[in-house]
Write a protein that binds this DNA or RNA. Sequence first.
RNA 1: CGGGGUGUAGCGUAGCCCGGUUAGCGCGCCUGCUUUGGGAGCAGGAGGUCGCAAGUUCGAAUCUUGCCACCCCGACCA
Length: 491
Amino acid sequence: MAKEFSTREENYSKWYNDIVQRAGLAESSAVRGCMVIKPYGYAIWEKMQGALDKMFKDTGHANAYFPLFIPKSFFSREADHVEGFAKECAVVTHYRLKNDPEGKGVVVDGDAKLEEELVIRPTSETIIWDTYRQWIQSYRDLPILVNQWANVVRWEMRTRMFLRTAEFLWQEGHTAHATEKEALEETYQMLDVYADFAENFMAIPVLKGVKSENERFAGAVETFCIEALMQDGKALQAGTSHFLGQNFAKAFDVKFASKEGTLEHVWATSWGVSTRLVGALIMAHSDDNGLVLPPKLAPIQSVIVPIYKNDGQYDTVVGKARELYDALKAKGILVKLDDRDTHKPGWKFNEYEFKGVPVRLAIGPRDVEKGTVELARRDTLEKEVVSMDQVVERVETLLEDIQHNLYNRALNFRNENTRKADTWEEFKQILEEQGGFIEAHWDGTAETEQRIKEETKATIRLIPYDENKEAGKCVYSGEPSARRVVFARAY
RNA sequence: CGGGGUGUAGCGUAGCCCGGUUAGCGCGCCUGCUUUGGGAGCAGGAGGUCGCAAGUUCGAAUCUUGCCACCCCGACCA
């Protein structure tokens, strides 16, 4: 029936939107540029939060919460920071409404104008560093390793579900250190945490590296990132970790007395990932039958669909299904038993396929008779019949298989779509015909990067820092280059 | 903010050029019966300020003007 959703081939962005809608992840809201994250989509985010939060705690961080509102003046403290965010800030100017004298609902009360306007945080560096000034006097107060889970607002011109919305949910870590070395180590460590999360939970291979100056976070000395490749050949920045140097400490006058008795500015980092990761998850693994979720992030890892013809069969089949449900649940597997009589089995099969549930178990009268269950895996759509006493074990290994298979599939895809370009013609041809990551030499200048961007829409995604250097000539200017960098068109 | 496009039931749409019965259809929804191993069938039923406002007209979904919203393409971005 109503099966008209797009394929990736036909219309990639429509396919993406269809999945977001049909899988019940999110929908657009009454507010321009903002989305409603629906329960199933939010459940995925909660799974992400759970895994990341544990990783943060395991590396010594603690959660805290800072205000949504930031005094406007804070933004002008750090010059690059203002410049980076000024164009996309929402500003609160009044604090009261009143009845419209002309009787047309409510209006802003002009008498209730704020003395100092408040910016709704696009990120929290400024308010946090204003606070850290109070917290830090001595080297004994360091390091401060704090994370916050929060919403932020960036007034974007064009928005896309999960990938770019005016308001989004994220996590921002803000740390303060006594030495440059320690701050740098923190920056690297958190990038590793993100890469680990992307690969082992999201099943998405990522490249790690440094951003070019153009792409650097406003106010950072150096921005590190992980980049993933989506199925349409476009890159997506999946996480960033910034080495802030002493920029914010200087802007907010945060100094500490060192062991040696000198007064020094504090070294800082910040790092974040957002609900954008949900978008990455969709675009990395899903297929033309709908969403495909890696088992470790699936809100429902397995679903049991009973099949029956009449009330008598319902009782036996669902009875068996309940036993199965209990057995799976006892093993810690997130299982759902869909015993609704309002939908037919075939309908449910399609529904859970569309929602990306990794493993489906179907049990009918024939199975009860023979002591079997039919298993179907979402990643390959393969089916198998397993005897009842082996089901739980089989589901466990299937979930692991699927997790690995998705990662390997994504890794193969990335390998097949990472190419070297040594001439400008080659570079443009790869972009036009194939997309993907392009490793090419770059002369290191912002001008060349800008020109390449203008001519091809491709940007430098990152400068790999763990790659063996290989000298060559810039693909655009022909000037000498010390190493290849990674280009791509990006989200 | 520039260029292009679209607004008709919960969703998708026909009708608009050329104004004239009760605004039609598919999906979904409700009721009943038959069904149930890959999106069931039949019968009956509910659901509409035709984006908003003003104008032209005996008469506007249809023509005119203004506004709003959304989508696509550009500049910006996690």
